[in-house]
Amino acid sequence: MTFDLFTPQVETARQHQVFRMLLDEQYAPERAVLNAWARGFEDRDGKFVQEFQMTFESGLWELYLNAALRGWGLSPDMSFASPDFVVGEPMPLCVEAAIAAPAKGGKAPIGYSIADIPDDFTEFNREAALRICNSFNAKVRRYRNYYSTLPHVADKPFVIGIGAFDRPLAHFAASRPIFAALYGLYHDESATPRGARRVVSYNVSSAAKSETVDIPLGLFCDDQYAEVSAVVYSSLATWGKVRALADNPLAKTVYTTYHPNGDDIKPRIKATLKAAYEEHLLDGAYVLHNPFARRPIAKGMLSHARVAEVHVATDGELLIDAPEDFLLVRTLMSVRERA
């Protein structure tokens, strides 16, 4: 079953600005990417298309997870109303999509000005970790109160997929907030001396939500969330990912990408014109396993040559299996000609 993402179903005033932009003919390659992500996906409640056209980010992330699961060689059974994805073969798996959304009254993730560029990345990452925890906890409550009672969910590994859309430039946070949220480990660039060979890292157990309220971090550091098998996370499955994958070689766009650089704490940076730029669907994605999971994911089920997969050793060390050129951050700059 296929459905039409791009015939407007809501009036223009209620359409998300990226959706309105996508209707322009020049973005036909980007529409093709989203239609490809939607293959096999079904609008089970009859509201997905309208919500996609109005809110965009949550629908974008759900479509991305649909494509990612198929990139892992999995075929979700869309006959179930919930959770979002139920996989039967080769091993059972349930996946629920969530986004780290802006705090109430916070700025939307799309569009930014110079004023939005953070001057304090520690604060930027703290707030991002709080938004991740908020989304994670909401899905855990839903699992405990409802999903776990469903016969097609019971006794299956349960994964939460979290996309970072909590503010303008959310992709700058990269993996810092998800490592703090799940494993209580924070890499602190602001505390790292110039010329250091390693980024200063330390354990964190909470982050301040307000002057009187702290939110626990290190959600995978004990068995309190044993029903969650893993988290799939990306800060780069955004409009930028759609543009990166679009077959539009004539676009006047430069992609600046950041990659690990061996033992050097400074990343390797590349600038590439669109015509020569290549990016994989799963570039920038993390699979973060819960060492206390009651139902761990079968070994290798979510492994992929382009993905960073994180396990915890018996001594507590994080074991990260990632490609040498793993995509840490991607930014793009386009030139638009005026008549």
Score class of each variant (00 low, 15 high):
8 P>L: 03
9 Q>L: 14
13 A>W: 05
18 V>C: 03
20 R>E: 08
20 R>F: 06
26 Q>P: 10
30 E>G: 08
33 V>Q: 01
35 N>I: 05
36 A>V: 10
43 D>M: 03
44 R>I: 11
48 F>Y: 01
54 M>N: 02
54 M>I: 08
58 S>Q: 03
64 Y>C: 10
65 L>W: 01
69 L>D: 02
75 S>M: 10
75 S>R: 15
76 P>L: 02
79 S>R: 11
81 A>W: 00
81 A>S: 09
81 A>N: 02
86 V>Y: 02
91 M>C: 13
97 A>H: 00
98 A>F: 02
99 I>L: 02
100 A>H: 03
103 A>W: 00
105 G>S: 08
107 K>S: 07
116 D>C: 06
116 D>R: 00
117 I>L: 08
117 I>D: 00
119 D>G: 12
124 F>M: 07
124 F>S: 04
125 N>Y: 08
125 N>K: 05
126 R>V: 14
129 A>C: 10
136 F>R: 10
136 F>S: 05
139 K>Y: 02
140 V>P: 09
141 R>N: 11
142 R>S: 14
150 L>Y: 01
151 P>H: 00
154 A>M: 11
155 D>F: 06
156 K>G: 06
158 F>W: 04
160 I>M: 04
162 I>Q: 00
166 D>M: 07
167 R>N: 05
178 I>R: 03
178 I>M: 04
179 F>V: 15
180 A>Y: 00
183 Y>L: 12
185 L>I: 13
187 H>R: 14
188 D>T: 10
188 D>S: 13
189 E>Q: 14
190 S>W: 04
191 A>L: 13
192 T>Y: 07
194 R>I: 15
195 G>R: 06
197 R>F: 09
199 V>G: 10
201 S>W: 03
208 A>R: 09
209 K>I: 14
213 V>M: 05
215 I>G: 03
223 D>A: 15
227 E>N: 10
229 S>K: 06
233 Y>R: 03
234 S>Q: 03
235 S>M: 04
240 G>H: 04
243 R>G: 08
247 D>P: 06
247 D>W: 01
251 A>C: 06
251 A>P: 04
251 A>N: 04
252 K>F: 07
253 T>N: 00
253 T>V: 15
257 T>D: 01
257 T>C: 07
257 T>S: 15
259 H>I: 12
260 P>F: 06
261 N>S: 13
261 N>G: 15
261 N>E: 09
263 D>N: 10
264 D>K: 11
265 I>P: 14
268 R>Q: 13
270 K>N: 13
271 A>Y: 00
277 Y>C: 06
278 E>V: 14
279 E>I: 11
282 L>D: 07
285 A>E: 02
287 V>Q: 04
289 H>K: 15
292 F>K: 08
293 A>N: 10
293 A>S: 14
294 R>Y: 11
297 I>T: 09
297 I>C: 12
302 L>E: 07
304 H>A: 11
305 A>V: 10
305 A>S: 11
309 E>I: 13
310 V>A: 11
313 A>Y: 05
315 D>S: 14
315 D>K: 10
316 G>N: 05
318 L>V: 15
320 I>F: 08
321 D>Q: 11
326 F>Q: 08
327 L>M: 08
330 R>E: 04
331 T>V: 14
332 L>D: 05
333 M>H: 12
335 V>E: 02
338 R>S: 12
